[in-house]
Each structure stands twice: as C-alpha cells, then as structure tokens.
Amino acid sequence: MNRTNRDIFRKRPLLSLLLALVLSLIPRAGQAAEFVLLYANDNQGEIEPCGS
C-alpha cells in the first residue's frame, strides 16, 4: 500500500509537467502580444558607411 502511494507521489511532478505541456500546446488565439519590429529599406547597394 505504502509503496503504491509513494509511486503516485513520485508521478505527480510528471503529471504536472505533462499538463503544462498540453496547456502550452493549446493555441491561444486572441491574446495580446508585445514584440519589437526592426526594419530597414533602401539600402541601395551600400555595404559600407556612406562617405567612407
């Protein structure tokens, strides 16, 4: 009996991990999101600083 309880107790962290993994895989549509956009244009064939 004691052995069984110990086994269940040992399995708990594993179950929690599995649950967290499943939750993270569920698509979270409609969420707010913060990100940084870095953008450029018109490099015009420049590889070096202008004038150098």
């Binding site: 940084v36 244009n41 490099n43």
Partner: peptide
C-alpha cells in the same frame, strides 16, 4: 521581428 522592404 526583422524585415526589409527592399531596394536593397
């Protein structure tokens, strides 16, 4: 996110 609009 990194983007370039062209004329590169």
């Amino acid at each position: 996110l990194r983007l370039d609009a062209g004329a590169l």
